[in-house]
């Protein structure tokens, strides 16, 4: 079920195109990765979703109807550049931000207490933000993003400023939020976390969407016939046998087994490769390499040049 969609969104600033005819569709209870190099237009799209700016043409829809200003109450947004009031007490400011999202004071206090207890930071309630470390501030910021139980959550570089332990905690929370029914749009340059978290991705480059699809399918699609083979036998023989069919990317020799990484040039199947190899070596392991998101990203952007 689709929760959110952007349809043919175009946005032009005075002298730059930020988005050109971009459409995305985000399924309910999924994590959608919004990727792209710096300045590609991600933040503009996110701001359009948040009703901060309006698209020149195209529309954004939430639950099947055009988004209205009041829909911001159903969105939780953690911007990349974020901050809180340094001189205000944490509890008070969290309540204020929650009220701005439409909660009553009572609801805000109740929800906040739940989160503060969960993160074991109840004793920060009366402290000021400026007394906290950067990582601690990020925790508070995260809570203020999710406190009003939004249907759609937008995280822009959520892990920046977190140490690995807290980053892990945050990952768990994000997954849990999804499992409890939230839909998440996730923008980051950390491709490792995209592989871990995202069900679906879209890649925007120079204002145009160039890749869109479920994460695993995209990685499949960007396979480039690379195989890793572990075998027992003579490397020279293997090399001679495979000849011009493959390009040898790397090889290491070892007492137990040699390892070789090859790219099949003529688009042959893995069986053909195996058949060629079996007479000259004893195969220990044979695996096709699926590209990492990092590779996909670089390849997609380079191909787009």
């Amino acid at each position: 079920m689709e929760l959110f969609s952007a349809n043919n969104v175009t946005k032009v600033f005075a002298d730059t195109r930020a988005l050109t005819d971009v459409s995305i569709s985000v399924n309910e209870q999924s994590i959608f990765g919004l990727l792209g190099p710096n300045g590609a237009g991600k933040t503009t799209l996110i701001r359009i979703i948040n009703q901060i700016t309006a698209p020149d043409t195209g529309e954004v829809r939430l639950q099947g109807r055009r988004m209205r200003t009041s829909d911001v109450a159903h969105i939780g947004y953690l911007p990349e550049e974020r901050g809180l009031y340094p001189k205000m007490k944490i509890g008070e400011q969290a309540i204020y931000l929650a009220q701005l999202k439409g909660l009553s004071r009572k609801e805000a206090v109740a929800n906040l207490k739940k989160w503060f207890e969960k993160f074991e930071i109840m004793d920060w309630w009366n402290k000021k933000i400026e007394e906290l470390s950067k990582g601690m501030q990020q925790k508070v910021q995260f809570i203020t993003t999710v406190v009003h139980e939004p249907k759609l959550l937008i995280f822009d570089e959520p892990f920046s400023g977190f140490d690995p332990i807290n980053a892990n905690l945050l990952k768990r929370e994000i997954l849990q939020l999804r499992d409890e029914g939230a839909t998440i749009i996730f923008s980051t340059h950390n491709m490792g976390s995209v592989e871990e978290l995202c069900d679906h991705i879209a890649l925007i480059n120079k204002s145009i969407k160039i890749v869109d699809g479920p994460t695993h399918e995209i990685r499949e699609k960007y396979k480039s016939n690379i195989f890793e083979v572990k075998y027992k036998g003579d490397f020279k023989k293997v090399d001679q046998t495979l000849g011009f069919q493959v390009k040898i990317l790397e090889h290491t020799e070892n007492e137990k087994a040699n390892r070789i990484r090859i790219q099949h040039l003529n688009g042959g199947t893995s069986n053909e490769l195996l058949q060629a190899l079996i007479p000259v070596a004893e195969i220990v392991a044979f695996e096709e390499i699926i590209p990492s998101m990092n590779d996909v990203f670089i390849k997609a952007v380079e191909e787009d040049k």
Partner: peptide, 16 residues
């Protein structure tokens, strides 16, 4: 101050 502290983006994602 709000602009400098970068809280403003959070605020205007809630209010006009």
């Amino acid at each position: 101050e709000e602009k400098k502290n970068r809280i403003v983006e959070v605020i205007i994602s809630s209010v006009k």
